[in-house]
Amino acid sequence: MAGEPDRQPALETPRLTIRPLREADREPLYDVASDPMVWEQHPIHDRWRREVFDGFFDASLASGGGLAVISKSDERIVGHSRYGRYDAEEGGAIEIGWTFLSRECWGRGLNHELKRAMLDHALAHVARVDFRVGETNYRSRQALEAIGAVRDPARYDLDRYEGRRVVQLYYTIDRESFASGPLASV
């Protein structure tokens, strides 16, 4: 069934609730984002600063695709992700990105759970999901490769942040690779 997926679905995993981002999430999400280690390799490495975070949060709210990631064990916001631009060409594609999780979530398989739910939702509607990641954001690049995303060497974006050039690389997962990849349902 091709067509643009709902960009703010309510999704559930065994340990996470993923729901549309709302204004009331600003402070609890900033509690997560205010950790400089979360942004250590990110091209916008100072998103832990209040004014930078507020711009990010406002853009996510306005995008119509922002999602709050909540731990079921204690009902706390532990992160954020977002569905981005939709492209109707060639069976459809949508971007997933802007993902960050609190350090307490790292190494526990929660990113896999989050991405499995988001990919399952998106790939029911589109043929491909795209991810953009900063060239020097090795932690995120490794996380994408661990979920089966493959870098597309022909696609990249050039951005600027604080006067520096930032190269954004593209990774993709399509229906077939998702169905047979590391996040495939058992």
Rank of each mutant, 00 (worst) to 15 (best):
E95I: 08
D46K: 01
Q142A: 15
P182T: 13
E27G: 01
P14A: 12
E162N: 11
E40T: 08
P43H: 01
P9E: 06
D174S: 10
E4N: 00
D87P: 00
H112M: 06
Y161V: 15
T13M: 05
V78L: 09
S185E: 06
R139N: 09
T17A: 11
G64K: 03
F53H: 06
C105H: 01
L183M: 08
V150G: 08
R139K: 13
T13N: 01
F57C: 07
R132M: 14
R139Y: 10
T99I: 14
Q142F: 08
G66E: 04
R132Y: 15
F53S: 02
E104H: 02
Y86N: 02
E95W: 06
K115N: 10
H80K: 03
L101V: 13
Y83T: 06
D130G: 05
A93R: 14
W39Y: 03
E176C: 08
L11N: 06
E27R: 02
W106E: 08
E95Y: 03
P36D: 07
L158D: 09
A154T: 12
Y156F: 15
I18D: 00
M118P: 06
G148H: 11
R50P: 02
A24Y: 00
F100R: 00
R47Y: 01
Y30I: 12
G97W: 03
V78H: 02
Y171F: 15
P14E: 09
Y161H: 15
R132I: 14
R175T: 12
R49A: 06
R160L: 10
Y171V: 14
D46L: 08
G55K: 06
G55E: 07
M118L: 15
A149F: 06
V129K: 03
V133G: 06
A149Y: 04
E12V: 12
L110I: 13
M1T: 12
S177D: 11
I94P: 04
A124K: 13
R26L: 14
R165L: 14
E27P: 01
R26E: 13
T17N: 04
E75Y: 06
S71P: 00
S177N: 12
G92C: 07
R141C: 10
S180G: 14
Y156L: 14
E90C: 02
R85H: 11
L183A: 11
K115C: 08
R103G: 11
V126K: 08
A149E: 07
T99Q: 00
S34R: 15
D157V: 04
P9N: 07
G66Q: 02
G148K: 09
L110P: 01
V167E: 12
W48L: 01
R50D: 01
A143W: 06
